[in-house]
């Protein structure tokens, strides 16, 4: 009756509210935890101590070189057809503008095909705004990550993107972007749905829109750490079932949702099992990834460092898409692997978490490891509003719900325990 023991302890028993309370203490203490910052390193030290306080002894850290992009002053003023402040967030690691800013006319494209069909003369010297409608994150986020490169190739002097979200109260959403090789690095930022749509309407009426963009930032490299907390298995300690979330966040908001919730349900798994004196046959490893936001930097470093032992990863799990009410798992793996996980999920019908969604690339950090053939899963949860808050000042504790966090922590812990304890390994392709 392991499932019931874990669920009761977390949902009704001594652990009730603990995940939320510890997350709140953490978020209130450290706030945002950007890659390369001192506050991120202090928050890592705090999590190590929090695990030690629970009598977890197998804790290691692994150093990783990470980007340290620091946002400076940013503002955009619409100069024509009228003066208006435009809310923005620069996209890391955007370059700065000259101190006086960049003043230019805006040209708007709905998608990359429209840009490709425009002549260089039409784009050269202008600010390009991409205004795609949000469909799915995966489909739409390319306009954040690639817009600067695509616009620069056509001669643009800066690029803007309509924030990657379905909903806005004039909230810009930051995120990462990548400069391609051999293109001019131009400043790039996200603006709000409201301002992007305003500019679109003006331009569609053949009204000239002129902006002044001022953005300052610095970029260097620092050393950070992935953190590994092990609850050693009783029979096959070399074999791993990994639960994980990332500890870094963007510099706006406080990273309570992205990915404080995922971090703390993954912290909770070995803690709950230790408290209940439940030790599965295989080792449960909780990983707190560093520097996920600038490009899965911690995950790439872990994959490289542990490549020779990757056969020992029996299953890898990650929560980085919200810790709202759990619905089940988004699973990548062989047919037999999915069948085993499906049978395990049947045990969670009572809490509404028995859905198995097939997904070739669940999670963010763990995608790096899953693509090498390791089976894994992301937490499938009721996250319809996740992108309302994602990478904004709104990512605070108010997004989190204590009862939903309890359900996630209980589900996460019980699933990891069962996978780590059953007779069969999770088979690969």
């Amino acid at each position: 009756e392991v499932r019931d023991e874990i669920l009761n302890y977390v949902i009704n028993g001594e652990f009730k509210g603990k995940t939320f309370d510890e997350l709140a203490k953490f978020v209130d203490t450290f706030g945002a935890r950007p890659s390369g910052s001192e506050v991120l390193e202090k928050s890592i030290d705090y999590m190590i101590q929090l695990a030690r306080d629970e009598d977890l002894k197998d804790i290691t850290t692994e150093e990783v070189e990470v980007p340290h992009w620091v946002r400076g002053e940013e503002n955009i003023t619409m100069l024509e057809p009228r003066v208006k402040n435009i809310a923005l967030l620069g996209l890391g690691p955007s370059v700065s503008t000259p101190p006086e800013g960049i003043t230019a006319e805006v040209i708007v494209f709905n998608d990359f095909d429209e840009l490709e069909n425009a002549t260089n003369d039409e784009v050269t010297g202008k600010i390009v705004l991409f205004d795609p409608e949000f469909t799915t994150y995966g489909e739409t986020v390319v306009y954040r990550s690639q817009s600067a490169t695509k616009a620069a190739a056509k001669g643009a002097v800066a690029s803007l993107v309509r924030s990657i979200t379905q909903f806005s109260i004039n909230s810009p959403h930051t995120g990462s972007q990548v400069y391609g090789d051999d293109v001019n690095k131009i400043p790039t930022a996200a603006i709000t749905l409201e301002d992007a749509d305003l500019i679109r309407r003006l331009v569609d009426r053949d009204v000239k829109v002129k902006l002044n963009i001022r953005m300052q930032s610095t970029l260097d490299t620092k050393t950070s750490r992935n953190t590994l907390v092990d609850l050693k298995g009783t029979v096959l300690p070399e074999k791993l079932v990994i639960v994980s979330g990332h500890i870094d966040s963007w510099d706006v908001g406080q990273g309570a949702m992205d990915d404080g919730g995922g971090l703390f349900v993954s912290w909770a798994a070995p803690v709950i099992l230790k408290r209940l004196n439940l030790r599965p046959k295989r080792t449960i490893r909780s990983i707190f990834w560093t520097a996920e936001e600038p490009g899965l930097v911690g995950a790439y470093a872990y994959e490289k460092k542990h490549r020779n032992e990757s056969d020992n990863i029996n299953f890898i799990m990650e929560s980085d898409e919200g810790t709202f009410a759990p619905l089940g798992l988004a699973v990548s793996g062989s047919q037999k692997a999915r069948c085993i996980i499906g049978e395990i999920l049947k045990l969670f019908e009572s809490i509404g978490a028995s859905e198995l969604v097939e997904d070739d690339s669940p999670g963010s950090d763990i995608a790096v490891i899953i693509k090498t053939g390791v089976p894994g899963a992301g937490l499938h949860n009721a996250n319809e509003k996740y992108f309302w808050f994602h990478h904004t000042e709104g990512d605070t504790m108010n997004v989190e719900d204590p009862d939903e966090l309890d359900l996630c922590a209980a589900f996460w812990t019980a699933v990891a325990y069962i996978i780590a304890d059953i007779s069969d390994d999770i088979p690969r392709e």
Partner: peptide, 25 residues
Amino acid sequence: RVLSKESVCQSLLGEELIHEIASYG
């Protein structure tokens, strides 16, 4: 997405493993 059919899983896993997993509940 498409979920695995129950019958496919039953033959892949076998009764013993299915019963073992169910025993955790």
